Lab assay of single mutants.
Amino acid sequence: MPVRRGHVAPQNTFLDTIIRKFEGQSRKFIIANARVENCAVIYCNDGFCELCGYSRAEVMQRPCTCDFLHGPRTQRRAAAQIAQALLGAEERKVEIAFYRKDGSCFLCLVDVVPVKNEDGAVIMFILNFEVVMEKDMVGSPAHDTNHRGPPTSWLAPGRAKTFRLKLPALLALTARESSVRSGGAGGAGAPGAVVVDVDLTPAAPSSESLALDEVTAMDNHVAGLGPAEERRALVGPGSPPRSAPGQLPSPRAHSLNPDASGSSCSLARTRSRESCASVRRASSADDIEAMRAGVLPPPPRHASTGAMHPLRSGLLNSTSDSDLVRYRTISKIPQITLNFVDLKGDPFLASPTSDREIIAPKIKERTHNVTEKVTQVLSLGADVLPEYKLQAPRIHRWTILHYSPFKAVWDWLILLLVIYTAVFTPYSAAFLLKETEEGPPATECGYACQPLAVVDLIVDIMFIVDILINFRTTYVNANEEVVSHPGRIAVHYFKGWFLIDMVAAIPFDLLI
């Protein structure tokens, strides 16, 4: 008679799926529990143990900040960024110097990925580790590398530091407007667009060049630039800015003055950032001319202004700041037409079709709590990747769950009947059967004279019903998954307890 339990259901295979997918890609990662103190490590794979030199037993239950890997060259700011990422709910990448158990130093890129439950609360953290440099290539500990984003994938490793954006290309926007319009339909740009040429040739750093990471940081200074100062900065030398009595002219307006920039070969870094931020506020060169004239017309309804409409929906549905990093990277690809469009465009503009998908598509409701890094690593669709929660398995109709209350009560009843059979069957065979043979035949009273025979008949009927119930009862397979398919249940029961239950259900007393 089957006594099969499996009270692990309803099970959740999400954690096993993450481990299996990460292991298949030869990654070095740990999984931490966000619900406990210090976000203790609950799993670390073999790749991480080989990377740091510690065994799994030495890593388990330690804080996922990996303070046991810190050393003299470990930056405090990087460690603080990892700790801050564990307090938030967004994906974050941090470069930090770690030390192995043998004392060797290596520069590592740590990717902190939160995993949320159905309520939107962070319950786990996945920390992925990628070695960037070994100890002989690690720089000085005073050099802070965590304020910069990861290198873009479309640049060669040897040319990542030679990417320079020439400031004269930004200063000569109005001069290039006529050349853009003359391109017409034969050019790649839309009317009114501004073409910015980027020099990728390796050259020595000069005062006129600005690194790509500095251009990325310009967006942080746009908020500090007032509207009046932006307007004066875009007017140009024809209309000098008016300053109040006793007030000095704005240095932001002076930063885009061609006369002032041409007199000296070098520009201050602050002026460069502010000038680029001011130019980015204009949607095209037409807006710059309109600002000089004193009238700013409404933005025209053409394809170039609607190019950012799908980007707005993608940004609203993005799951991490990696989408913004990807957008900034692609927006700086050289030799393309940049349409400086305000994100607050007309909502009635139709979304044009684009061959290049900048932001990841909208994630469906079932995966809105899973970050983009987890979705990318697992390579699963929205119909396959579940949320991290207890999910009731989908069972067929008329199927009994093996952990249901009805099955528990039924098993206790069958257990009592088995005990009765084990006690009274030998007793009936030894004593009652002998008395029946010696006594007179009682054929007239039937079952009324033999109450134990009636009980034995009921017990046999219950055993037959138990066999039928076992054909529709779920079970737990070797992978700790609840199986509810009727065919698989029948095959599993035939290979197991079916023969024993059938022999126990045969009414031998009635056959004798």
Rank of each mutant, 00 (worst) to 15 (best):
R4D: 13
R4N: 14
R5S: 09
G6N: 15
A9Y: 15
P10F: 15
N12C: 08
L15V: 14
I18T: 06
I19K: 03
I19W: 01
K21G: 06
E23F: 01
I31Y: 01
A32L: 01
A34Q: 05
E37P: 12
V41A: 01
Y43V: 01
C44V: 15
F48P: 01
E50D: 07
C52A: 13
A57R: 14
P63C: 13
T65L: 05
C66K: 01
C66W: 01
D67S: 09
D67Q: 15
F68R: 01
P72E: 07
T74P: 01
A79W: 01
A79Q: 10
A79M: 06
I82P: 01
I82D: 01
I82T: 01
A85P: 01
L86S: 01
A89E: 14
A89Y: 14
V94Y: 01
I96V: 11
F98S: 01
R100Y: 01
D102P: 01
S104R: 07
C105Y: 13
C105S: 14
F106P: 01
F106E: 01
D111L: 04
V113L: 14
N117E: 07
E118T: 13
D119T: 09
D119A: 06
F125Y: 15
F125I: 05
F125A: 10
L127F: 03
V132L: 06
D136E: 06
M137S: 14
P141H: 06
A142K: 09
D144S: 14
D144Q: 15
T145H: 06
N146V: 12
G149I: 06
G149Q: 06
P150F: 06
P151T: 08
P151I: 14
T152E: 05
T152S: 09
S153F: 04
W154N: 11
A156H: 12
A156G: 15
P157N: 07
P157W: 12
A160C: 09
R164W: 06
L165R: 09
L165K: 06
L167M: 15
A169W: 15
A172F: 01
L173V: 08
R176K: 06
E177Q: 12
V180N: 09
A188S: 06
D197P: 05
D199S: 01
T201D: 07
A203C: 10
P205F: 06
P205H: 05
S206Q: 15
L210M: 15
L210D: 08
L210C: 05
V215N: 10
A217I: 10
A223I: 13
P227E: 06
P227L: 05
E230C: 09
G238T: 03
S243K: 03
S243A: 10
P245I: 07
Q247Y: 14
L248W: 15
L248R: 11
L248D: 13
P251F: 03
D259W: 14
A260K: 07
S261M: 10
S263K: 15
C265H: 08
R269K: 08
R273I: 12
A277Q: 06
S278M: 15
V279A: 14
V279L: 11
A282N: 14
A282E: 12
S283Y: 05
S283L: 14
S284E: 15
A285S: 04
M291I: 04
A293H: 07
A293T: 05
G294A: 10
L296I: 13
L296M: 14
P297Y: 07
R301P: 10
H309Y: 14
L311H: 07
N317K: 03
S318D: 11
D321S: 14
L324R: 11
L324C: 13
R326F: 03
Y327G: 14
I336P: 11
T337H: 14
L338D: 14
F340K: 14
L349G: 12
A350K: 11
A350T: 07
R356L: 09
E357Q: 07
I359C: 07
A360K: 04
E365N: 15
R366Y: 08
R366D: 04
T375E: 06
T375Q: 04
T375S: 07
V377I: 09
V377Q: 01
S379V: 03
S379N: 04
L380Y: 03
G381K: 05
A382L: 05
V384K: 05
L385E: 03
